[in-house]
Design a binder for these strands. Sequence first.
DNA 1: CATGAATGAGTTTTCATTCAT
DNA 2: GATGAATGAAAACTCATTCAT
Lengths: 185, 185, 185, 185
Amino acid sequence: MDKKQQILATALRMFVEYGFHGTATAKVAQEAGVANGTLFHHYKTKDELVLAIYVWIKDELEASLAAITHDSDFITPKFKTIFTATLHWALQNRGKFYYLRQFELSPHYANVPTGDNQTILDRLIAEGIRRKILRTHPAELILTLYNNHVFGLYQYITQADLEPNKQTAIISEGYEMIWGMLKYA
Amino acid sequence: MDKKQQILATALRMFVEYGFHGTATAKVAQEAGVANGTLFHHYKTKDELVLAIYVWIKDELEASLAAITHDSDFITPKFKTIFTATLHWALQNRGKFYYLRQFELSPHYANVPTGDNQTILDRLIAEGIRRKILRTHPAELILTLYNNHVFGLYQYITQADLEPNKQTAIISEGYEMIWGMLKYA
Amino acid sequence: MDKKQQILATALRMFVEYGFHGTATAKVAQEAGVANGTLFHHYKTKDELVLAIYVWIKDELEASLAAITHDSDFITPKFKTIFTATLHWALQNRGKFYYLRQFELSPHYANVPTGDNQTILDRLIAEGIRRKILRTHPAELILTLYNNHVFGLYQYITQADLEPNKQTAIISEGYEMIWGMLKYA
Amino acid sequence: MDKKQQILATALRMFVEYGFHGTATAKVAQEAGVANGTLFHHYKTKDELVLAIYVWIKDELEASLAAITHDSDFITPKFKTIFTATLHWALQNRGKFYYLRQFELSPHYANVPTGDNQTILDRLIAEGIRRKILRTHPAELILTLYNNHVFGLYQYITQADLEPNKQTAIISEGYEMIWGMLKYA
DNA sequence: CATGAATGAGTTTTCATTCAT
DNA sequence: GATGAATGAAAACTCATTCAT
């Protein structure tokens, strides 16, 4: 398990730094301190490794959001909690958050097995629309706009290299913006 | 000249379909109907080709926006005009618009020579902030949020494969959203 | 013992289907339902496995011929019996017979330990020549022509996919041919 | 062209000595005095190279037989001429002849494009059967037995390492044998 | 301007074999 | 005996780039 996890972490770091194609599997193995063949013993192909990292990060973010919300929470504050927590997580896990975007905009995204596993956010949006707390738009549209807004803020904050308190202020502003944009009436 | 343009167009199509690394220069040359060496006769390196396509598309979009606006326009309607025109252009030039995103999120973006050539949108936002028509935020933040919103709408419309009239309706809605989000007070 | 035999049988099948080099030991182990290391526990190298299969089949064919002949038989009918039995055995054990050829034409053949263990056929030919029932040619020549004739018939019958009665007829014809070719005067 | 032919000749020699799988393309390129990539510039895959060699040899043998026969020849002497010439060619081009067998018994044989290009021998056998000069068997059977007989003689002569005059004598004997076996009545 | 043969470093992947448990 | 994770040396193949014509 140790080596497997070591490969995962090293690959993540290198993929973020050099891109998928810019990172040779041999280099990953070397930096992870394992033999070339060991990487392929655990992940049959490079694509499989790329996907495994995505699932790992996705699960981790989801778990971190699950830890601070409850099904019984009211929708409006829950929305704020999730938005804020996501951005803070993103800023404390920049490599991981960047990886998610990099992956989702790449052809690799097509390899994700399509289960019906809805995320907390998926369910929240669906319920918010149904209860007329969010605008009556297709959930898919709301989700897409939300994600792009979150990524936009992340992009700005990281590129402008803001101080922590400024970061919190912007996140707060950003929340007001998206809420004003998506809330019902 | 013919061959040069042929290479450009073919490369654009293939880069969008297979990605930068997934597209071999030899394949581009072949599909463009020119010899391997001809491609390198016009563009010294693959990176140079990738950049040339970006500049070409960027200029084309800018020219198309320039054709429908004037420096003397009022800011508020001009903002709407540009937003709407950009999205329509994106939907009629999907490959080109997608290329812009692909390029800007890639390490290639660092190769763009940093001139002070501001776009129409850059100038509009700067002036909007100065005149307190747009929120008093850093121009960079406003621009980032704007761009991500535009791309989010583009993503939704293309993935949902909407009919033309639905497209126009969503673009109109999308405009109201971003305007509500960015306008002063 | 069970596992050892299981490995042998699985390897035979796969070597015939994919060739020696085309068959990975890991795949053999997997299909045989044993662990990777178990294969190497029983056979020190892949070459050793390849050889073991050859010896196994060779012994089986020899035993099957021994069961229907006696040292005291007359040479002429014994020749016919052996020829006919060999071909029938070959057609009922196609994989095994094909393996023998595949092995003997490969560099692996050099690994067979050279004992003086003569086969029934070897002894029969030697005696036939000595007693002037077979042509006075080097035994090696007669054996080679015999083997190629047998394989030729096998090739034709399997490729033409003949019905059982046709098979018997061809084998009979084939016997007349080789006998006419090799018998004395 | 020079390099292409150089690759072909080198690969032939190495495939005969080490087998298809035992010969690395990198080694072929090295021995042929060309770069690794050059080999793949001329032959897209190793399989394509293997096939190209087969076609080359096959054509060469066919041309050599065509040079000493005429369509108007009588069948019986033509048969002898071809048989004898084939064996002499085989003994003077041992690598090439061995390659043909090696190839035809391998899975590569399935890659040969199935045209209707009949060889001289194919046509001769078909006509011999029709005119009742050869036994009334399926042409395929006659051809298979013929080929195996030729290869058997080749095998014996090369393994016994006979002197030239002995070779000629055995070939002559071998002709009588196959003719006795295949001629009508 | 245009060509396409030639290059060789680099890539992913395979695989027989070992060894600690 | 049995296991399967670990190994690392190959292997086939790719590809941006050069250059003589």
